[in-house]
Nucleic acid binder design. Structure first.
Lengths: 128, 128
DNA sequence: CGGTATCCAAAAGGATACTG
DNA sequence: CAGTATCCTTTTGGATACCG
């Protein structure tokens, strides 16, 4: 049980809070994956990669509570749980994907900028 | 000096890394503010609110290195430094703003979903 | 399979003091 | 004013063990 509410969940305007959920490390990736189709828990875990079970659970619960993700637990043995975007979640995910797509397209520019920045700083330290 | 490179900066594909910069707690707010106009360092600090000096510095440096923010340090006493979006940064900031605006508009829906979620869980625990 | 609970290491981030 | 450096607290997140 959570004995301490995380800092991010207190004393912040609710709007920023939801924004943090959407833009959290794993939130972004979950939303983008679910934009394609439904996923089962472990399927999503494998698709995303490095995410731990705990973090995926936490992320999905947060997104479910915010009404962005629908959790469909089928009462079968072995258990089967499917996660899907709600209509609200689909809208959010499309915004998130917009950002992700932009980033992907512009990576080259960013890397060029970094080289220039690092080289400029290199010259700085040599001059000292 | 940074003795340990943060986890977030190593062993991750560069694309995700930039996405984390854009969606970081303070990155989002810096970009949205700069979309309106240039800001001086302390002006930005006051406008954003709860951000510490250290975090704002760090955020601005990261965004500058990624080529999203331009830093204009005027050689005057007392020092004056203005921060502006680059063209690349403006594109990024517009994506980020899209997400922020969506969130703001849909807050009501999210809060309704949360009430429903919490109430459902409440009934669960009473039934046990 | 799809989680929960607990513990612990790592990282983020704030406070303070100091500098050009 | 606009930072940097240092210390220290809070939060995040991974590993492990266990449950329905």
């Amino acid at each position: 049980m959570a004995v301490s509410t995380p800092r991010v969940d207190e004393a912040m305007c609710p709007y920023r809070l939801v924004l943090e959920h959407l833009t959290s490390r794993w939130g972004v990736l979950v939303l983008i994956h679910l934009l394609d189709r439904s996923y089962r828990f472990s399927e999503l875990r494998r698709a995303i990669g490095q995410v731990s079970e705990k973090m995926l659970t936490q992320t999905l619960q947060t997104l479910e509570r915010d009404g962005l993700v629908h959790r469909d637990a089928k009462p079968v043995i072995p258990p089967r749980v499917d996660y899907t975007l709600t209509d609200l979640g689909r809208e959010a995910a499309e915004q998130v994907r917009g950002l992700a797509t932009w980033t992907h397209e512009r990576m080259g520019e960013v890397e060029k900028a970094r080289l220039a920045y690092d080289e400029a700083r290199e010259r700085q330290s040599r001059a000292s």
